[in-house]
Write a protein that binds this DNA or RNA. Structure first.
Length: 260
DNA sequence: GTTCTAGAAC
DNA sequence: GTTCTAGAAC
C-alpha cells in the first residue's frame, strides 16, 4: 500500500476495528486515531476524520480542501475532531503520570502542508524526543512558534474571525509555508540556535530531563505539604511490565508488514 | 512519508 | 577521516 493513500484507506473503513492493533488506537463515530508510524515524540498519534456521508474523501483530502468547501461543515468536522482528540490527549496524560510520574504538554495541530493525503490532526507530546525525529524538516514541522504547525485552537479561531481573515488563512499555499521548514534550528523552549540535528536533539533531551526533574520535585513537595509520605519514589524506573500499548513503543505489527 | 548516499561541513 | 545534510528514488 502506498503511503500516499494509506490514511484515506483507513478513514474509509466501514469498520475501523478491523484494522491491525498496531495501527489503530481508538475510534468513534466521527474519527479514528492511529499510531503515527514514525513517532516524532514519546507520544504521537494521528486523528483522522472518517469518510462517512455527507463527508467525502475529496473534501477530507486536506485542511486546504476542507476549508475551501462549505464553511459550517468544515467547522463541524474540525470541532468533532477536536472533541475526539481531547479524549486521546487525556489518555496520553494518564499514561504520562502512570509511567513517568508527571505530565507535560501535548500539542494538537495540523501541518500547513501535509505530506500524506487525508486530513490528519497530530496529537504529539512536546518533548520531541524520538529516534524517528531525524531531520530539520521533521523538527521545524512541529515547532510551535514557527508557523508551519497550525495549532488546533488557532484553526478553530479562524472560523470566528473576520471572513476575509478566514479566506486568507484557508489558502494554505505550499510555497508560503515550505520555506519555514528550512529555517535555522532553534529550541522551541529557550530559543537557542543549533548548527545541526544531533546537537539540537541532545539539547531537547536535556530540556525534557530538566522539566521532569522540576515537575517531580513539585509533585513531591505537594505531597509533603499534604502530609502523605507513603507513596513510591517518583524517580524510580518503572519500565518492566507491559508498556501499555498507548505508548510510543507500540506493539510489533501483528502481521508481517507494517502499513504506511 | 522513508531510505540511501554523495559530497559538504567540520 | 568522520559526521551530517539534503536530494533522488521509492
Amino acid at each position: 500500500m502506498s503511503f500516499l493513500t494509506a490514511l484515506r484507506q483507513y478513514a474509509s473503513k466501514a469498520d475501523p476495528s478491523s484494522l491491525p492493533t498496531s495501527v489503530l488506537f481508538t475510534h468513534t463515530a466521527n474519527s479514528l486515531t492511529i499510531f503515527d508510524a514514525f513517532p516524532k515524540a514519546t507520544f504521537h498519534f494521528l486523528v483522522l476524520p472518517r469518510a462517512r456521508p455527507p463527508l467525502t474523501v475529496f473534501e477530507l483530502a486536506s485542511l486546504r480542501t476542507l476549508l475551501k468547501g462549505d464553511k459550517q461543515r468544515a467547522r463541524q468536522t474540525i470541532q468533532a475532531l477536536a472533541e475526539d482528540a481531547k479524549q486521546v490527549r487525556a489518555m496520553i496524560e494518564e499514561e504520562m503520570v502512570s509511567r513517568y510520574g508527571f505530565k507535560w504538554e501535548v500539542w494538537m495541530g495540523f501541518h500547513a502542508v501535509p505530506s500524506m493525503e487525508h486530513l490528519h490532526l497530530h496529537v504529539i507530546s512536546s518533548d520531541l524526543c524520538s529516534p524517528s525525529l531525524k531531520t530539520k524538516k521533521h523538527y521545524n514541522s512541529f515547532h510551535p512558534k514557527l508557523g508551519f504547525f497550525l495549532s488546533l485552537d488557532d484553526v478553530l479561531s479562524w472560523f470566528d474571525a473576520d471572513p476575509t481573515f478566514y479566506s486568507t488563512m484557508s489558502v494554505l499555499k505550499p510555497t508560503q509555508y515550505e520555506p519555514l521548514l528550512k529555517e535555522t534550528l532553534s529550541c522551541w523552549r529557550c530559543g537557542r540556535d543549533f548548527k545541526n540535528m544531533p546537537t539540537l536533539k541532545a539539547h531537547l533531551q536535556e530540556e525534557w530531563d530538566k522539566e521532569a526533574e522540576r515537575e517531580k520535585t513539585k509533585a513531591a513537595n505537594k505531597k509533603r505539604k499534604h502530609g502523605s509520605e507513603n507513596s513510591a519514589d517518583s524517580n524510580s524506573e518503572r519500565d518492566e511490565h507491559a508498556p501499555k500499548r498507548l505508548q510510543t513503543g507500540r506493539p510489533a505489527p501483528a502481521d508481517s508488514e507494517e502499513i504506511d
